[in-house]
Design a protein around this nucleic acid. Structure first.
Lengths: 157, 157
DNA sequence: TAAATATAGTCAATTTACTTGACTATATTT
DNA sequence: AAATATAGTCAAGTAAATTGACTATATTTA
């Protein structure tokens, strides 16, 4: 019996590999566009930061990590020029983290690279199957969320 | 503009979240079946170990990690009773790592849990869409592999 | 309005899962 | 037989998370 298709876990493995294929390609191309110092997790931070910034706690919750871990990531991103901390306008305890020019540049590069990846995928599968793929995956994730298990972007192991 | 569907990265995000949803569910259920001490990565090791065992180097290559890291994982799994090292029958340097009773038990539990997950997914999407989902994802991954970028099970960030 | 409690963020220390480098023992090639 | 390659381990270092302790500000309660 073919081991990879035995059991019921094949779709899960395929989602994992599909994600990795895309994210590897993204970071190869980001690196050769001058963004060698960003990790996959940073992209998810940027996504939460656009367009108006977010607090450290919001980032932590978005990523499913502790606020301390989020704070350390923000340290890194600030040192590398991707974000800046501003004092929060309405909460003296809080700060808002916003993207710098370089941060936005990285987002734009990411958009461009992913557009290329998905264009190649669409060439391969056709637009209809691509749409179905997205629709179906959305439904699976939605179902998980409705069962009371919200899904985060956390690292997997 | 809806942020999550802007840009071309939505399918990638969906694959990531779909994978996480499944793997989180798996490990919640494994934990309540007495397998609290296995990580997602271990499942991929077990998959490589079934049915006849493998060497440390084979595991390392399967996972895309160093042989030292693989050796440490095997240490952990051996201490926790999931695998056992035997001396290699034909290579005096090598060892083969094989599953113990408990290791097989974990595989069986995993199979059972994933079968349940995929059954619920099939209820949701119908068998045809599930088949298309698998077929399409396989094609995307195959295309990446053919571009000279083999995809491993490594952690993502 | 004063006191109690909750929240945002940081600092410090620890843990975990990897890495690199050095090494031994056995195999393979020259 | 000597040189080189390979399988595995030991030890130390690194990166990214964790937990715990703390400060400063906000919010709730008495």
């Amino acid at each position: 019996m073919d081991n990879k298709s035995s059991g019921g876990y094949e779709l899960t493995v395929l989602m994992s590999l599909g994600f990795r294929a895309a994210i590897d390609e993204l970071h190869r191309q980001l690196a050769s566009s001058g963004f060698e110092d960003v990790r996959p997790a940073h992209g998810f931070v940027f996504q939460r930061l656009a367009p108006h910034g977010a607090t450290g706690n919001e980032i932590a919750e978005h990523m499913g990590i502790t606020k301390q871990a989020a704070s350390q990531m923000i340290d890194y991103l600030e040192e590398h020029g991707y974000v800046k901390r501003h004092s929060h306008p309405r909460d003296g305890r809080g700060k808002i983290v916003v993207l710098t020019e370089r941060g936005w540049g990285c987002i734009q590069a990411t958009e461009r690279i992913f557009a290329g990846i998905e264009r190649r995928w669409t060439d391969l599968l056709g637009r209809e199957r691509m749409d179905e793929l997205r629709t179906d995956l959305r439904r699976l994730i939605q179902a998980a969320a409705e069962e009371g298990h919200p899904v985060h972007f956390r690292p997997v192991w």
